[in-house]
Lab assay of single mutants.
Amino acid sequence: DMPHRFKVHNYMSPTFCDHCGSLLWGLVKQGLKCEDCGMNVHHKCREKVANLCGI
Rank of each mutant, 00 (worst) to 15 (best):
C34K: 01
C34D: 02
L27A: 04
E47D: 07
L24D: 02
K7L: 10
R46F: 10
S22N: 07
V8K: 05
V41M: 10
C34P: 01
P3L: 15
G38P: 11
V49F: 06
H19C: 11
G21N: 14
N51K: 08
G31F: 01
H42C: 06
C34E: 00
G21Q: 13
K44T: 08
M2V: 03
F6Y: 06
N51M: 02
L23K: 01
R46D: 13
Y11G: 02
V41A: 08
D18N: 13
L23W: 09
D18I: 10
G26D: 03
S22Q: 15
V49Y: 08
K29F: 08
G26L: 02
H9V: 07
V28A: 07
S22K: 11
Q30F: 02
K29D: 06
L23V: 06
Y11S: 09
G31H: 02
D36G: 09
L24M: 13
N10S: 07
E35S: 11
E47S: 07
H9R: 10
K33G: 13
L27R: 02
S13K: 13
H19P: 14
L24E: 04
R5D: 15
P14Q: 03
L52Q: 08
N51V: 04
K33D: 11
L27M: 08
G31C: 01
L27T: 03
L23G: 05
V49L: 11
H4S: 04
M12A: 12
H42Y: 01
Q30V: 02
G54P: 14
M39H: 08
D36W: 05
Y11D: 01
N40D: 10
P14F: 07
C20L: 00
N10H: 06
H4A: 02
M39E: 14
N40E: 07
H4Q: 04
G31A: 06
D36R: 06
T15F: 07
P14L: 08
C34A: 00
L23S: 03
F16S: 08
I55C: 11
S13H: 06
S22A: 08
G31Q: 01
E35P: 09
H43L: 09
E47I: 12
T15H: 15
C45N: 00
L24F: 06
G54L: 07
A50I: 09
T15P: 03
G54K: 06
L24V: 08
V28F: 07
S22I: 03
G54Y: 09
L24W: 01
L32I: 14
C20D: 14
Y11L: 04
F16V: 05
C17D: 00
M2G: 03
S22F: 06
G54E: 15
I55Q: 03
L23P: 06
H42R: 07
G38I: 06
H42Q: 06
C17L: 00
M2F: 13
S13L: 08
G31V: 01
Q30T: 01
Q30N: 02
C53L: 13
S22M: 10
G21L: 11
P14D: 03
P3I: 15
I55F: 08
W25T: 04
C37Y: 00
F16Y: 12
C45L: 00
D36F: 05
N40F: 02
D36L: 06
T15Q: 14
V8G: 13
L27H: 02
C45H: 11
K29P: 03
L32C: 14
S22T: 12
P14R: 04
L32Y: 13
C17G: 00
P3Q: 15
Q30W: 03
P3M: 15
M39T: 13
L24S: 03
L32K: 09
S13A: 08
V41W: 09
G26V: 02
K7E: 06
H4C: 04
W25D: 10
H4E: 04
C34W: 00
S22H: 13
M12R: 10
G54N: 12
C45Q: 00
S13M: 14
D18L: 07
V41I: 11
L24Q: 12
T15V: 05
G31Y: 01
N40S: 11
T15R: 11
H43M: 08
I55S: 14
K29S: 11
P3T: 15
N51Y: 05
M2S: 05
H43N: 08
P14G: 05
H19R: 11
K48T: 08
L27Y: 05
R46Y: 05
H42T: 04
C37V: 00
A50D: 13
K29Y: 13
H43A: 08
T15G: 05
V8L: 05
A50S: 10
M12W: 10
K48C: 08
L52A: 08
H4F: 02
Y11C: 04
P3D: 14
P14I: 13
K48A: 12
H43W: 08
E35L: 12
E47C: 13
R5T: 07
F16L: 06
M39G: 12
N51H: 05
C45R: 01
L32G: 11
C34I: 00
K48G: 12
E47N: 13
A50G: 09
F6T: 13
C37L: 01
F16C: 08
M2H: 14
F16M: 14
C34Y: 00
K48Y: 11
Y11V: 03
S13F: 14
D1Q: 02
G26N: 03
L52Y: 12
G26T: 02
K33E: 13
P14S: 03
V8Y: 05
H19A: 12
G54F: 08
H19F: 10
M12S: 08
K48M: 09
K48L: 10
G26Q: 02
H4L: 02
K7R: 07
N10A: 03
W25I: 07
K33A: 15
G54A: 12
L23A: 05
E35H: 13
H9Y: 10
M12N: 05
V41L: 11
A50M: 09
Q30K: 01
L32M: 13
C53H: 15
M12F: 15
V41T: 12
N40L: 02
C45T: 01
I55T: 14
V8A: 11
C53Q: 12
C53R: 14
D1A: 11
G54Q: 08
K44Y: 13
G38K: 13
N51P: 05
L24T: 03
D36M: 06
G38T: 10
H42W: 02
F6A: 04
N40V: 07
K44S: 10
E47H: 07
K44W: 08
H19N: 09
K33I: 13
K48F: 07
T15A: 06
C20T: 01
F6K: 03
R46T: 11
S13T: 07
E35M: 14
E47T: 12
C45K: 00
A50E: 12
G38N: 12
N40A: 06
K29G: 15
L24H: 09
H4D: 05
M12D: 04
F6C: 04
D36S: 07
H19L: 06
E35D: 12
L27P: 02
N40K: 11
C17S: 00
K7P: 02
L24G: 03
N10I: 01
K44F: 06
C17W: 00
G54I: 13
P3K: 15
G21E: 14
F16A: 09
D18T: 09
C53A: 13
D36P: 10
P14E: 04
K44A: 11
P14T: 06
M39Q: 11
E35T: 14
L32N: 13
C53F: 15
C45P: 00
R46L: 09
F16G: 07
Y11R: 02
L27Q: 03
C37E: 01
A50W: 10
S22W: 15
K33Q: 13
R46V: 12
G38W: 14
S13Q: 04
K29M: 09
M12K: 06
E47A: 09
P14M: 06
K7C: 12
L24K: 03
D36N: 05
D1E: 08
M39D: 10
K7H: 05
